[in-house]
Design a protein around this nucleic acid. Structure first.
Length: 274
DNA sequence: TTAAATTCCTGTAAGC
DNA sequence: TGCTTACAGGAATTTA
């Protein structure tokens, strides 16, 4: 599933091909994938807009257009945003097609339809509640271990649940929550507020490392994740715990445990993580 | 305020 | 072989 490293890969790939292009037309084959504004308004207002910038906040793709407006894409579980020749046959579950002025198309495909598209200024989207207030970027140099420690204070929920909370830290999902907790040798069910400064410092570093390595490997294609060209990443081959329940821990050889935290499958080593 | 449970959705795989 | 069922999970929403 697309988390911060996967979204970052797509954004970095798309940026040089999209900036300066104009969206000449938009077709919605599944209109309710658009959550703001009304789909009809979305189609009408996006035509003719020029793309000024392509960025990311958490797991959200921000495509900056004329007049301070943003085309925001969230990929949910199975969303794919591809830049493709207009003549290429349409894949099933393609919900939105943006025609560009160079003959290419930006296509949004999402079998499970957990993703969504938004259009508007950032303020407008925040006020409408369609764009949530996000926590800091975990790979931002300004976000230090002390900032993470402060955000954990008085939180009694499991540290894994708090890592998944996008208003605490933006961009972490099930894969990199489990991976960073393993690297930090911390049990995912520990109450976030119970962690010492030292432990949080270790987790902060592990989280950053997990995300940066995954970006270098162009993300984890554990499910349907594909980049903007339809290609897989390679980080799934490097994962230490995610998807490896019952398999031996790479450090101690003990079978990895599987539990459920915050409604998510959670894999960790009972011997190495405390 | 925080946390837990529920809901949405389809492809895949396990079980009978 | 073919059917049913469980499971995967991001995050909005609902409930406690």
């Amino acid at each position: 599933m697309p988390e911060l490293p996967e979204v970052e890969t797509i954004v970095a790939d798309l940026r040089p091909h999209l900036v300066g292009r104009t969206i000449v037309h938009c077709e919605l084959r599944f209109p309710s994938i658009v959550r703001h504004p009304e789909p009809e308004t979305f189609i009408d207002s996006i035509a003719g807009m020029r793309i000024e910038a392509v960025g990311r906040r958490g797991k959200f793709i921000f495509i900056a257009l004329d007049g301070g407006r943003l085309l925001v894409v969230h990929l949910g579980m199975t969303g794919q945003l591809r830049l493709i020749d207009a003549a290429t046959e349409l894949a099933n579950h393609t919900h939105a097609i943006f025609d560009l002025d160079d003959g290419k198309q930006l296509r949004y495909r999402d079998p499970r339809r957990f993703g969504r598209l938004l259009l508007g200024t950032e303020d407008e989207l925040l006020i409408s509640g369609t764009l949530p207030k996000l926590g800091p970027e975990p790979i931002d140099p300004a976000f230090d271990a002390e900032a993470l420690f402060k955000r954990f204070r008085r939180r009694r929920a499991p540290v894994k649940a708090v890592l998944l909370d996008q208003s605490t830290v933006a961009g972490v999902g099930n894969i990199y929550a489990d991976e960073s907790l393993h690297r930090a040798r911390l049990r995912p069910d520990r109450a976030a507020g119970s962690l010492s400064r030292k432990s949080v410092r270790r987790l902060h570093e592990s989280l950053r490392d997990s995300l940066e390595v995954a970006i270098r490997n162009r993300g984890s294609s554990v499910d349907t994740y594909r980049d903007a060209w339809g290609d897989m990443g390679s980080q799934q081959e490097e994962l230490l715990v995610y998807g490896r329940a019952g398999e031996p821990c790479v450090t101690c050889g003990r079978p990895l445990a599987l539990v459920r935290i915050a409604g998510r499958s959670t894999v960790f080593c009972r011997r190495c993580q405390h």
